[in-house]
Each structure stands twice: as C-alpha cells, then as structure tokens.
C-alpha cells in the first residue's frame, strides 16, 4: 500500500501548497496597497479595503478622501490587474502546453497576442492622427478574437485542428500581423513611443475599467479550464489515445483553444505583451508539484498572479522612471528559467 499512500500524500501536498499561495496572494494585495509615494500602513490599507468593500462609512470617515482614493482607485485596480493578468497568462500557458502537447508553447504561440497588439497599435495610431479617443483595450480584444478565428480557420483548411497545424497557422498569421505592427509604427513617425511603450507591456495607471475586463474573463475561463482538466490531462497522451480513453477530443480541443485564447486576449488587451509568465510558471509548478491540470491550472492562477504582481510593484516602487513590467519579467524570469533548465534532473 506504500505506493498508493504516497500517491495520496502527493495530492495533499498540492492542496496545501495551493492554500498557502492563496493566503500569500491575499496578504500581498493588502500589503502593496499600503506601499507607494503616499505612506499608508498595512493595517490602514486593510481598514480602507474592508471599509470600501463592505461599504462601512464609520471606518472610511477616519481617513482622508485622498488616502481612500489612492488606495481604492489608483493602487488597488493596478494590483488586481497584475494578479489576474499574471494568473491568466500562466493558466493559458498551462492550457496551451497541454493542448498542443508542446512544453515550449505559451499563450502567445497561436498569434492571438500579436492580434491584440495589432489592434492596440491601430487604435493608438488612429488616436494620434485624428486626435480621437478610441478605446485601446476593446480594439485589442476584438482583434485578438478575430485572429483566433483566422488561426482556427487556416489550421482547419490546412488539414485539421492538430497541434502542428495550429502552431504553423499561428506563426504565419502572427508574422503577418507583426509586419503590420511595424508598418503602423513607421506611419506613426515621431509619435511611435506611445505604441512602443504599449507593446512592451505595463500595468501602470490601470483603472477599474481594466479590472472589469480582465477579471471576469480570467475567472470564467479558469473555471471552464478547471472543469475539463481531466480531459486535458488525457489529451497529453495524444489525441488517439484520448479518444480510446473516452474523451471527446474534438470538443475538448475547441474548448481549450477558445478559453485559452480569450484569457490571453483579455490579459494582453489590458497589459500589453508581458513575456515569460505564461511559459515559466506552468513549468515550475510541473517541476515542483505535478502535471495534473486539475491542480496545475488553479495553482498557475495563484502563483502567476503573485509573481507578476510582485514584479509590477517592484517596478512601481523602486524605479524613478518606471521600467515596463514586461521587460522586467523577461529580464529576471529569463535567467532564472535558464538556471532551472540547466540544473534540472531531466524531469521535464
């Protein structure tokens, strides 16, 4: 019974790790809302948050209006965005890696993010040239969605929605859109910096509007992903095996394709292109704990959120002129992943 007991123990270990990470994430949200140019302590921040959350006027009256505004309207939305973008990208990464049966896949493999970037660049260009205020986030999201449809269409015409077809279709459409972005950048002339900064990925000055876009998509997407996780596990054994094990492979594939892409689209529309979180977090968790997507997907949500939000608050608090967090995640995440990759015991 030894081996069986071991198996049960491993399942418990993942649960404990998950709960621990969740507690850390919640503590971090409160901690970070207290940090910044305006000094507000941990407990004051916590009081403002609970006061606002439950609408308790008594608590709120003891604080100045601008303190409440800084915590609730400036810092909190940015921190929530960081948590959900990081978590969303990591979950989408885990889904795409399993779905495409490729440990090197990430949320950007299918070109959906490039579609979002193209949409955002286009909106920025139009705004610059015609002095308009097109909603960049919505443009990004819409273009990401159109790109997804295109990739599915092309892969399907190219022989079916199989891993290799999807990756190739993603690469082709992604590179066409990249060229489009370059063209837009060139057209923008000396105003190009706005586009360049958006593309680098940042969470600076995100508002509640952004929260309303990213949170529902990531949450619902994550729940759907969690619901079908057993099927996704079996899909990693290959499509044919999955079918003989009783998995409706066509349905499962389409579900994860859409869910993973929508999560990615929402994240990219809100934050620009933030690299590495979606590739590294699922890998680390597989390495440390398990490949079981039923555990992996929720853990990705929490750990991805923690990592991105720590990185974002690092750029917010320690740099005089803010470094885009997308640059930071890749600068720090890259070498770290390199270290893990070289020192691994050939387990993944």
């Amino acid at each position: 019974m030894n081996q069986i007991e071991q198996h049960k123990k491993n399942k418990k270990k993942s649960l404990v790790a998950g709960l621990l990470l969740l507690a850390i994430a919640i503590l971090l949200v409160v901690f970070f809302t207290g940090q910044g140019a305006m000094e507000i302590g941990f407990f004051d921040a916590q009081k403002i948050l609970t006061g606002k959350f439950f609408g308790t006027e008594d608590i709120l009256n003891t604080f100045k209006e601008n303190e409440i505004a800084v915590v609730w309207d400036i810092r909190l939305p940015r921190i929530i965005c960081g948590m959900f973008v990081g978590g969303g990208l990591a979950m989408a990464g885990a889904m795409f890696q399993s779905l495409l049966r490729n440990p090197l896949a990430d949320p950007y493999t299918l070109g959906v993010s490039t579609g979002a970037a193209f949409g955002a660049s286009l909106a920025l260009l139009i705004n610059i040239i015609f002095a308009m205020y097109l909603p960049i986030t919505l443009f990004a999201f819409a273009f990401a969605f159109v790109t997804l449809i295109l990739v599915i269409f092309v892969a399907n015409r190219g022989g079916g929605l199989y891993s290799s077809n999807l990756i190739i279709a993603g690469i082709i459409i992604g590179s066409i859109l990249s060229a489009g972005i370059s063209f837009i950048k060139m057209t923008a002339g000396e105003n190009v910096s706005a586009i360049v900064f958006w593309l680098m990925g940042s969470l600076a000055s995100r508002s509640w509007t952004d929260v309303y876009i990213v949170v529902p998509v990531v949450l619902i997407g994550g729940l759907i992903g969690y619901y079908f996780a057993n099927d996704l596990n079996i899909m990693t054994a290959g499509e044919n095996n999955a079918r003989t094990l009783g998995v409706n492979t066509k349905r499962t594939r389409l579900i994860y394709l859409i869910v993973g892409s929508l999560i990615t689209a929402a994240c990219v529309s809100v934050s620009g292109i933030i690299g590495f979180v979606g590739l590294v977090i699922p890998h680390l968790l597989r390495y440390w704990l398990t490949s079981d997507n039923r555990t992996l997907i929720p853990l990705c949500m929490v750990l991805g959120g923690i990592i991105l939000s720590v990185a974002d608050n690092f750029t917010r608090l320690f740099f005089i002129s803010e470094v885009p967090v997308g640059v930071l995640t890749t600068l720090i995440g890259g070498p770290f992943f390199l270290y893990v990759f070289i020192s691994r015991d050939r387990r993944f």
Binding site: Q3, H7, Q97, P103, T236, R286, F348
Partner: peptide
Amino acid sequence: NEFPFSCIDT
C-alpha cells in the same frame, strides 16, 4: 508523453 505525469496518475 512529453509531460511528467506520475505512473500511477497515468
């Protein structure tokens, strides 16, 4: 399988 599932999970 490219992914590190344990044998018993498999």
